[in-house]
Design a protein around this nucleic acid. Structure first.
Lengths: 205, 205, 205, 205
DNA sequence: GATGAATGAGGGTTCATTCAT
DNA sequence: TATGAATGAACCCTCATTCAT
């Protein structure tokens, strides 16, 4: 095999491992996840897994970094200059589509926060800055009378909560709606419901 | 010690153990939690812990049953006959106060759902029935023109999402708001924000 | 079993484990020693061993502390006021008898020093002070004309070398002398040889 | 590259590997040494190391053979016909200079003996014969009245002990003398001390 | 000649649990 | 009621080595 092919194959297996790791960490948390379980999800032996990773800790941190970068990229380039409606519609739609397609990603993220975010703490300063920048735009909307006065940071948290929820609790939603499995959760329908709730919730009185 | 005192003392220690277990399961999930860790949180030895419990699995299931009962009780007796506003205000307030006072309870619950709810599945049929009953009331409000048309089950999920979030992601909220610790999260203020968002979000157009 | 008996039994097994550990560490060094090997020497299972110790590192450090204390005690109370001859005779005799009876102790000690004494370094300040005190006595002998001028610290190192050697290299000595096993190494005869060499070596000219 | 150059390069790397191996075996013993560690000391990859060696066992045995040959060569050609003084001076000086320049060699040798000399046992018959030949010369000196009666084999052991010690325990000597590092151990000064001790120790009375 | 991939064995340690008293 | 002892399984990881290019 040529050097390029080898590198490609290596990247491929590393990707497989990361996906498997995210799924395992999402289901069992950091300490509950086993490298055995990750290997099984990646369909390789535990020995082979340990050939490719340096440690469980590193694999975990790498996966978290990957998730943070992914979400950074997911929201990249949404236009906030056209006012609240198109922005919120686009933002919520993107988040919901992503979260329903890859619920494990959201779950691992929340599991890390639930245990106190020991690893994430070193990674989310940029997220805070983005949140503060978005808050300023929201405050502009308030001043322009486009939406009613509101805490611009809590608003973001709440949108996050509404969308994240459908990844974390999808089995519950499926059960309550009487569906047969998660695949039946329609991201477009959920987007409509949440956009309507939030947009109406922000209407100036 | 009299027989009664002994029974009291036993109940006391069992309560301590359950609290410790919930905290440990919340932080590390089922497989990540260790009986050692639970014993440490309860300030007893591992040997003593195993004297009082039958197994880790049972302790886990007991704790979940306790949580389900707790939430059932928490929402007991809220008056739905006075229309949406007083109901939502009371419901959201109760949930938020409870969740900020005992975030571990919410976290353990979500952790169980995130791993597929293997234990909870056998316990939440009553919750579904309550949800369906509440949905009928909500539909009555819609028909009476008190609120705009909306999916009454998703509405409940979303209220749940908004409140639950502040238990799951409190360290994130604290970080984003620039607070110094979770104790500074004010349940009344959060109640106001969420009630306002939901009530406005439901206003008939 | 009464509490006292239990404590006794515990001390007994801890002693057995320490002896086994010293033998294993002596033969294979710290990293080469295996808890499996230690357990085998102590005639217990690896699981049982790990019930009694906290870690390999701690067991190693404990064993070293034990050795240091043992040697401190071994030389306790030798009279240096009667001049060089009785002192050297007593000192060398004690060291040789001990070292031939427990060569593993000397070997573990030397193995630790050979790898740079990472653990011992924190323990031998008292030994240095004792060495300096002894050096002053030796200098008194020189001034009194009892022995020829000599470096009093190197003298102690060399006596240490001569005696320690018979623990470290006993299999070589046995081979060179054509003996059949270590038991045939006679501590009294070795004492005579070494005392004669050193005493003559110190004679004033 | 020509065939000769290739062979040279191969010898070079084999030498590097052997040096690295001796250092690793000296510090950690046979079982404690890792091929990873040896590769690191030789500044090559573990894969490359295993390309050049057949096994850890063989590498170990080769290194020991090399050491035995080295010491054989080290003492080659010392004149024993001029009586004890020039011989002892030369012998001790050579040994000390070598041992302080390459303490790892002495350490690996002693570590092998300390674990029972399983490999060395097959290699040191020649050393025994040399020892016996030297013993005869010493006995000649005794008969000629040049030195006092003494066990000629133990004498050799003791000289060995005195010199070997400064390789094995150099960190201890450095500590006791209050030096800052091993480089400050002066082989000429140590030679003087030891030669004086031994020569005086052998003086006829 | 050299290097990435892979693997079975074993390393130290923690796990939930049972036993004995 | 309570606690020390003990154990088999599993934990993460490193080991020396072999295979395939």
């Amino acid at each position: 095999m040529s050097r390029v092919d080898l590198a490609e194959k290596r990247d491929e297996i590393l990707q497989t491992i990361r996906d498997a790791a995210i799924a395992e960490f999402a289901a069992h948390g950091f300490s509950g996840a086993s490298t055995q379980g990750i290997a099984a999800r990646a369909a390789i032996t535990k020995n082979r897994l340990h050939y490719y990773i340096t440690s469980k800790d590193d694999l975990y941190a790498d996966a978290l970094r990957y998730i943070v970068a992914l979400w950074d990229e997911m929201f990249h380039g949404i236009d906030m200059t056209q006012g609240p409606e198109p922005f919120l519609r686009e933002y919520i739609s993107r988040k919901l589509h992503h979260v329903l397609a890859h619920p494990e990603i959201a779950r691992m993220f929340t599991a890390e926060i639930m245990r106190g975010a020991p690893v994430l703490q070193g990674l989310w300063q940029p997220a805070r800055e983005a949140t503060l920048r978005a808050a300023q735009v929201v405050e502009g909307w308030v001043e322009a009378g486009l939406i009613r006065p509101i805490d611009p940071i809590l608003l973001q948290m709440h949108i996050w909560a509404l969308t994240q929820h459908h990844a974390l609790h999808s089995v519950e939603t499926v059960f309550m709606l009487g569906l047969s499995n998660e695949a039946e959760l329609d991201p477009d329908r959920l987007t409509e419901e949440i956009v309507a709730l939030v947009l109406n919730g922000l209407r100036p009185q």
